[in-house]
Simulated scan of single mutants.
Amino acid sequence: MSRVDNLNRILRGLQTGSPDVEASALISEDGLMIASALPQHVDDTRVAGMTATLSSLGARAASELERGTVQEVLVRGEHGYAVMLASGSGTLLLALASKQAKLGLLFLDMRRAADDIRKVL
């Protein structure tokens, strides 16, 4: 099994293990898609670029506001959440979750997936 296959398996596992996770992706810090479990109508390139940009802005804000190293970036919209967290080796894990998502469980599941991703990378 290739690394990409393993990464896609981890992303699918995040979605099946967390019923509130609607989609997920692994993105490089410079905005390139590595693996994804996104709906077909979603433009991978745009999602990757936006995720990297938001993560970078979150890191800069945390630094400027003296909050230390950013742990995660959370965007809450009318239809749910977009959560980004560093998953090691210059990668970002993105999860799109429903508005009913329990954030504590979501963060826990994402951290576990990030640990699995680090083992593959």
Rank of each mutant, 00 (worst) to 15 (best):
E72C: 02
H41N: 15
S98I: 12
S18H: 09
D43P: 11
M84I: 11
V70S: 02
A62W: 01
S18N: 15
S87W: 01
S98P: 09
A82S: 08
G104S: 08
M50H: 02
I34C: 02
A97C: 09
L92F: 02
S55H: 05
S63T: 14
G104Y: 00
L57N: 04
A52R: 05
S63V: 03
I27T: 07
S98E: 12
L14F: 05
L65K: 08
V75M: 09
A25T: 08
L38T: 14
S89P: 03
M33F: 02
S28N: 08
A61T: 14
D44C: 11
M50E: 05
G58N: 04
S24R: 04
V75K: 00
L14I: 14
R12C: 09
Q71F: 01
L92K: 07
S98R: 15
L65S: 10
R60E: 10
L57K: 01
G58C: 04
S55L: 05
G90D: 07
V21E: 00
R46P: 04
S98W: 05
R76M: 07
V73C: 05
H79D: 15
L74W: 04
A95T: 12
E72R: 04
L54Y: 05
P39S: 14
L74Q: 13
G68E: 03
S24H: 05
G68P: 07
L38W: 14
M33D: 03
E22P: 06
L32Q: 10
L93T: 06
R12I: 14
S89K: 12
T69L: 12
M33V: 09
S36N: 15
H41I: 14
A37P: 06
L105N: 10
A48S: 15
V47G: 06
I27S: 01
R76G: 07
A82M: 07
V73L: 01
E72L: 08
L93I: 10
T91W: 03
I10A: 09
A61N: 06
Q15H: 02
H79M: 15
V42T: 13
G17S: 11
S98F: 05
D20Y: 10
H41K: 15
Q100E: 13
